[in-house]
Amino acid sequence: MPATPIPTPLLDTAGLPTGPADIRLIVTDMDGTLLDDAKRMPDGLWPMLAELRRRGVLFSPASGRQYATLARQFAEVAEGMVFIAENGTYVVRDGVELSSDTLDASVAARIVRTVRELVADGVDVGAVVCGKRAAYVERTDEAFLAEMRRYYVEHRLVEDLTAVDDDVIKIALFDFGSAEHTTAPAFAAFAESHQVVVSGEHWVDVMNRTANKGTALRGLQRALGITPAQTMVFGDYLNDLEMLDAADWSFAMAGAHPEVVSRARHLAPSSNDNGVLRTISRVLGL
Score class of each variant (00 low, 15 high):
Pro2His: 07
Ala3Asn: 05
Pro7Phe: 09
Thr8Gly: 00
Leu10Phe: 10
Gly15Glu: 09
Thr18Asp: 14
Pro20Asp: 13
Pro20Lys: 15
Pro20Met: 11
Ala21Tyr: 07
Leu25Arg: 09
Thr28Gln: 03
Met30Gly: 04
Asp31Gln: 12
Gly32Asn: 10
Thr33Leu: 11
Asp36Ile: 10
Asp37Gln: 12
Asp37Ser: 11
Ala38Pro: 04
Ala38Tyr: 09
Arg40Val: 11
Arg40Lys: 03
Pro42Thr: 04
Leu45Pro: 00
Leu45Ser: 00
Trp46Val: 02
Pro47Ala: 13
Met48Leu: 13
Glu51Asn: 10
Arg55Glu: 01
Arg55Lys: 15
Ser63Thr: 12
Ala71Met: 02
Arg72Ile: 08
Gln73Asp: 10
Val77Thr: 06
Gly80Asn: 04
Gly80Thr: 06
Phe83Lys: 00
Ile84Gly: 01
Ile84Cys: 04
Ala85Phe: 00
Glu86Gln: 15
Asn87Asp: 08
Gly88Ala: 03
Tyr90Gln: 03
Val91Glu: 02
Val91His: 01
Val92Arg: 00
Asp94Gln: 05
Ser99Asn: 14
Leu103Cys: 07
Ala105Tyr: 06
Val107Cys: 05
Val107Ala: 06
Ala108Asn: 01
Ile111Ser: 03
Thr114Glu: 13
Thr114Tyr: 03
Val115Gly: 01
Glu117Cys: 05
Glu117Gly: 07
Val119Leu: 02
Ala120Asp: 14
Ala120Asn: 11
Asp121Ile: 12
Val125Pro: 08
Val125Ile: 12
Gly126Ser: 07
Val128Ser: 04
Cys130Val: 15
Val137Tyr: 05
Glu138His: 13
Thr140Ala: 10
Glu142Met: 03
Glu142Cys: 03
Ala146Gln: 08
Met148Asp: 05
Arg149Tyr: 09
Arg150His: 12
Tyr151Phe: 14
Tyr151Met: 07
Tyr151Trp: 12
Val153Asp: 04
Glu154His: 15
Arg156His: 11
Leu157Val: 15
Val158His: 08
Val158Asn: 09
Val158Met: 14
Leu161Tyr: 04
Thr162Met: 01
Thr162Asn: 05
Ala163Phe: 07
Asp165Tyr: 07
Asp166Ser: 04
Val168His: 03
Lys170Pro: 05
Leu173His: 03
Phe174Lys: 14
Asp175Glu: 10
Phe176Trp: 08
Ser178Arg: 03
Ser178Leu: 03
Ala179Val: 13
Ala179Leu: 09
Glu180Asp: 12
Thr182Gly: 04
Thr183Pro: 00
Pro185Ser: 15
Phe187Ser: 01
Ala191Arg: 00
Val197Trp: 07
Ser199Ile: 11
Gly200Val: 13
Val206Asn: 01
Arg209Gln: 12
Arg209Met: 04
Lys213Phe: 08
Gly214Asn: 03
Ala216Asp: 04
Leu217Gln: 02
Arg218Gln: 11
Gly219Asp: 02
Leu224Thr: 09
Pro228Phe: 12
Val233Cys: 14
Phe234Ile: 15
Tyr237Glu: 11
Asp240Leu: 13
Glu242Phe: 00
Met243Cys: 06
Leu244His: 01
Asp245Phe: 03
Asp245Trp: 07
Ala246Tyr: 00
Ala247Thr: 11
Trp249Gly: 06
Ser250Thr: 08
Ala252Pro: 00
Gly255Trp: 01
Pro258Met: 07
Ser262Leu: 13
Ala268Trp: 11
Ala268Glu: 03
Ser270Asn: 01
Ser271Ala: 07
Asp273Phe: 05
Val276Ser: 06
Leu277Ala: 09
Leu277Ser: 05
Ile280Gly: 02
Val283Ala: 14
Leu284Asp: 08
Gly285Ala: 14
Gly285Cys: 15
Gly285His: 11
Gly285Phe: 14
